[in-house]
C-alpha cells in the first residue's frame, strides 16, 4: 500500500504542511490537537490520501459518492470520535475490492447455489464481494430514487439513517430493482462489517487514518509487547498506538 511516506522525515513534514486539507483538519480538531503541534503521526496521516481528492481504484465516482455517504451514516463524526470519512474508510473499502478478498478468491464459488438455503448455512450467493458491492450500491440507489427521488448520497441525514435501518432489517426488496438474489440485509451486513474493519484495522490498509479510531478507544495497535503490564491491573495503558508502518500516534492529552 502507499500510505507510508517514502520521503525523508523533513521532506515529509514540508509535504504535510502543503497537504493539510479538510479531512486532516477535521481529524486534528476532533482529537483536540492544535495545528502547530502536529507531529510525526500526523505527518504519516498526511501521507494518506485526502478522501475528497482520492481517485478510486474500483468504484466509479457515483458509486464512491454513495459508498462514502453510507460509511458516513454508519460511523458519523461526533464529539466522541472522528467518524468513517475523516479516517478514510471509503478508501479502505475501495482498496479491499482489489484484493483476493474482494475478488472472492478464497470463497467457494462453484454452483449450484441456493440463496434461500437459510441463515444457518451462511453466505450462499454466487457473487464475489466486488460484484456484491456493485449490485448492492446500484440497487440501494435505485430504491432511494424510487422512494425519495434522489440517490442515497443526496438524501438528508435523517433519510439516510432511515434507509440504512430499512436495509438492515431486510425491508428493502432488491428484487424490485433488478436484483432477485441479493437481499438488502446481506448487503448491509457486509457494509457494516467492512466499515467497522476500515475504521479499526491498521492504517496500512487505507482506513483508520492517523490511528484515530485506536486513539479513541485506547487500543495500542501493533505495540505487541506487554510482559511488564500483565500484572498491572485496572490501570489505563498510558501509551498511544503504533502501526505496522512504525508510526506512532500521541494521546490527545499528552504533550508531545
Amino acid at each position: 500500500m502507499t500510505q507510508t511516506p517514502s520521503t525523508p522525515p523533513q521532506q515529509g513534514l514540508r509535504r504535510r504542511e502543503l497537504l493539510i486539507g479538510s479531512a486532516i483538519a477535521m481529524t486534528a480538531a476532533t482529537l483536540g490537537i492544535p495545528f502547530g503541534r502536529l507531529t510525526a503521526a500526523e505527518a504519516a496521516a498526511a501521507g494518506a490520501p485526502d478522501l475528497a481528492s482520492y481517485t478510486p481504484t474500483f468504484f466509479d465516482a457515483e458509486e464512491m459518492r454513495a459508498l462514502s455517504a453510507i460509511c458516513d451514516t454508519l460511523i458519523p463524526a461526533d464529539e466522541d470520535g472522528p467518524g468513517a470519512l475523516a479516517t478514510n474508510v471509503p478508501v479502505f473499502i475501495d482498496l479491499q475490492m482489489d484484493t483476493s478478498y474482494g475478488r472472492g478468491e478464497d470463497w467457494y464459488m462453484e454452483g449450484p447455489h441456493d440463496p434461500n438455503a437459510g441463515d444457518a448455512f451462511g453466505y450462499q450467493l454466487p457473487y464475489d464481494l466486488r460484484t456484491l458491492y456493485r449490485k448492492g450500491l446500484a440497487a440501494t440507489d435505485a430504491w432511494s430514487r424510487d422512494q425519495h427521488g434522489a440517490g442515497f448520497a443526496d438524501l438528508s441525514g435523517e433519510q439516510r439513517v432511515e434507509a440504512l435501518n430499512a436495509l438492515s432489517k431486510g425491508e428493502v426488496d432488491f428484487a424490485a430493482y433488478g436484483e432477485p438474489m441479493l437481499d438488502g440485509e446481506t448487503f448491509f451486513d457486509f457494509l457494516l462489517q467492512n466499515t467497522r474493519e476500515g475504521y479499526l484495522a491498521d492504517p496500512i490498509y487505507g482506513g483508520n487514518k492517523g490511528m484515530a479510531a485506536w486513539v479513541m478507544i485506547g487500543f495500542p495497535g501493533a505495540r505487541a509487547s506487554f510482559l511488564e503490564w500483565v500484572t498491572r491491573h485496572n490501570i489505563p495503558y498510558p501509551l498511544g498506538p503504533v502501526d505496522l508502518g512504525g508510526n506512532f500516534a500521541p494521546l490527545p492529552n499528552v504533550k508531545a
Partner: peptide, 16 residues
Amino acid sequence: PKWGPGFNKALKDSYG
C-alpha cells in the same frame, strides 16, 4: 447502537 449516532461512544465505552 451497532452503527450510526452514538456508535463512537459505544465503541469507547465498550472497549477494554
